[in-house]
Simulated scan of single mutants.
Amino acid sequence: MDLETVRTFVAVAEAGQFQEAADELGVTQQAVSKRIAALERALGVRLFTRTPRGSALSIDGQAFLPHARELLRVAERAAASVRAGHRPLRVDVINSRGAATGLMRAFHRDRPDIDLDVVMLLDIEAAVAAVRSGTVDATFRAVAAPGRPLPQDVEAVRVLDEPLRLLTGPGHALASARSVTVEQLVGHRIWMPGIVPGSEWGAFYDDLVAEFGLTIEATGPNFGSDALLDTIADTPSLATFMGGRTRLVWPAGHGLRLIPVTDPTPVYPHALLWRRGNPHPGLAALRGHLAAATAGEETAGTWTPDWAIPR
């Protein structure tokens, strides 16, 4: 059923005259008459009767009027659900405890007036496709990994450099160190199950190994962060990298150590990606919040891959 025809019917019913309804809708009286005639043909009934003072609803018109008004209300609600600013801002983060999630929590605390819908897409190709299609408004990723240029309709800005820390158990050879240099890590086994070949974090660690000669092992199934912490706590020969903004909780008996890495400090280059021309006002607010929250970050003495977009 054509909504403009239904809207015209309601306008005539409320005005009582075709000409007055035409003036309200900004069309000619002839256009109003044609729309009403088409609606009557579609329904198979007469909706109006002529009177000396204009037009009055027939019995069928009176029966149809409340349903016509509800159709228009439903149409307005449907449009409002996707109108910029009337639906939640949808943002993709990689996991629930990472730096990007922390940034989104801070944004939500500062801007509770903006509805948020946070999703987690593992694959960068899926995330970029979702941004381009409008399924999500933005995604946090490390770009642009080698051989993965961004599409022309996608913009990106580097928003956070997250320093890596070494996580060890109490029996590890470096457990008592206040800090360790990258050179001191050479020869130690750094275990990181769950690195996905071809992912942006996989490319980051590949370049880290190539640059500094580290030993990073991604063997074995990834049973999640709890199992990783258990293994590191119980295995003196293993350590792992953790992002400095990753929130972790472990039993007190684990005796785990988080040790800063220096000379240089490897930092993971988080960026925000969005589609050019996305009109959602919450996206502009998020970009402004991130710019203010990460302004003035010190980059001296840090390392990132050559392919990371500049600050």
Rank of each mutant, 00 (worst) to 15 (best):
A210E: 15
G220F: 04
V12A: 15
G255I: 08
P281E: 03
R53F: 04
V267A: 06
T265H: 07
R69V: 11
I36Q: 03
R141M: 12
D263S: 14
G85I: 12
S179Y: 08
G169T: 03
F107V: 02
P88L: 02
V143E: 14
A239D: 12
F223C: 00
A13K: 01
G213M: 13
F48C: 14
R41Y: 05
P88S: 02
G282F: 13
N222L: 00
N222K: 00
A175H: 09
P66R: 05
A156P: 08
T246C: 03
E200M: 10
D117I: 00
T235P: 12
R111V: 13
S237L: 12
E297F: 12
A21M: 05
H280I: 12
V119F: 00
R90Q: 12
T215N: 12
D206Y: 04
V267F: 07
E14H: 07
V136M: 12
G282E: 11
R148I: 11
P66A: 01
D137V: 06
E297N: 11
A203S: 15
W303K: 11
E125A: 09
V10L: 08
R90C: 14
E155G: 09
R189P: 15
R178A: 04
R276D: 04
H280T: 05
D306V: 10
V182D: 02
E20S: 14
V27G: 04
P146G: 06
R35P: 07
G202N: 10
R311L: 10
I216G: 03
R287P: 01
P269F: 01
A203D: 15
L47R: 09
G194T: 10
V154I: 12
R132D: 02
T304I: 15
G171C: 05
P112Q: 09
G213W: 13
D123V: 04
D306T: 10
R97F: 06
V10Y: 07
G277H: 08
E217C: 08
N222Q: 01
R35D: 07
R276H: 06
P281S: 05
V74G: 04
L290V: 05
G220V: 09
T262N: 09
R257F: 04
A68V: 01
P310E: 03
R73M: 08
A295R: 15
V159Y: 01
A284V: 14
M120L: 07
S81K: 02
D60C: 03
S55E: 06
Q62M: 07
T181W: 02
G147T: 12
